[in-house]
């Protein structure tokens, strides 16, 4: 058995692989936060059909949705520095790789979340906006205080799904030289010839993380409902 599958090796290397998890988490966190901000802004642009910006937003979304993620990553990582150099910017070498990774992930998440929030806003009853206007609110107040909070409640489960696929998407960053769990498993496997055990470890860690995010998602949903119930006098 040990010849085919080395359980001791799997257990022994688990903490080593796990010690690289922070890269994936950091990318997911940054992309999640920036993506939600981008997504909200783009959704509002599209819903209110703000002339030129609306066109740009539509192009942005169809580009992100229409191209493979790896292509986007390479475009930014290999393409952007070239372009900047040709434009005369010399400090390319000082920009850390993670910077490009953050940009691509944030733009990627932003495009998907924009569509989610857009349909969530459309799902909010039209009467809510009218009521906000009727008491004298302007558009910014109405959206930030009434419409967006309700849209987010509607969108939470779907946004969590996006966060989960973003997390899984971080397994591609080794392609641009970021050392994450995948890269570590790759390096160790090259020496030990025990790639199976190493990648099982990677899989276990991803499963655990996805499980945690799902739990957090249901917790937030429950808390919203629970909050309402608790206040029921």
């Amino acid at each position: 058995m040990g010849i085919y599958f080395d359980l001791d090796y799997l257990i022994k290397t688990f903490p080593i692989i796990l010690s690289y998890v922070h890269t994936s988490l950091l990318i997911t966190l940054v992309a999640g936060v920036i993506g939600i901000v981008i997504g909200s802004i783009v959704a509002l642009i599209r819903i209110n059909k703000i002339t030129i910006l609306d066109k740009l937003a539509a192009i942005y979304i169809s580009f992100i949705r229409g191209t493979p993620f790896l292509v986007q990553l390479f475009l930014a990582y290999f393409g952007l520095p070239e372009l900047m150099q040709k434009l005369g910017y010399q400090g390319i070498r000082e920009i850390p790789t993670l910077f490009y990774v953050f940009i691509v992930f944030s733009l990627h998440v932003g495009a998907y979340i924009a569509e989610i929030i857009r349909s969530a806003i459309l799902a909010v009853d039209k009467g809510q906006l009218e009521a906000a206007y009727s008491i004298g609110m302007g558009a910014i107040q109405a959206y930030s205080r009434i419409i967006l909070p309700q849209a987010f409640s509607i969108a939470i489960p779907t946004i969590c799904n996006i966060i989960i696929s973003t997390l899984k998407g971080t397994s591609l960053v080794f392609n641009v030289g970021v050392i994450d769990m995948m890269r570590k498993a790759d390096l160790m496997g090259a020496n030990s010839h025990r790639s199976l055990e190493l990648y099982i470890n990677v899989a276990i860690i991803y499963i655990l993380l996805v499980f945690i995010i799902s739990k957090v998602s249901t917790f937030i949903e429950k808390r919203q409902v629970g909050y309402h119930q608790m206040n029921n006098l």
């Binding site: 009853d125 009467g127 809510q128 009218e130 009521a131 906000a132 206007y133 009727s134 008491i135 004298g136 609110m137 107040q141 205080r145 009434i146 909070p149 309700q150 409640s153 206040n231």
Partner: peptide, 30 residues
């Protein structure tokens, strides 16, 4: 709109606000 108010057929209370907050909103925010 600052000088008028409306009562709707389908109430249109702000669903993310309590009864009290619904009434406070126009006072505190507007």
């Amino acid at each position: 709109r600052q000088r008028t108010a409306m009562v709707f057929q389908t109430y249109n209370l702000f669903k993310n606000k309590t009864a009290l907050e619904n009434i406070m909103e126009g006072l505190a925010i507007v």
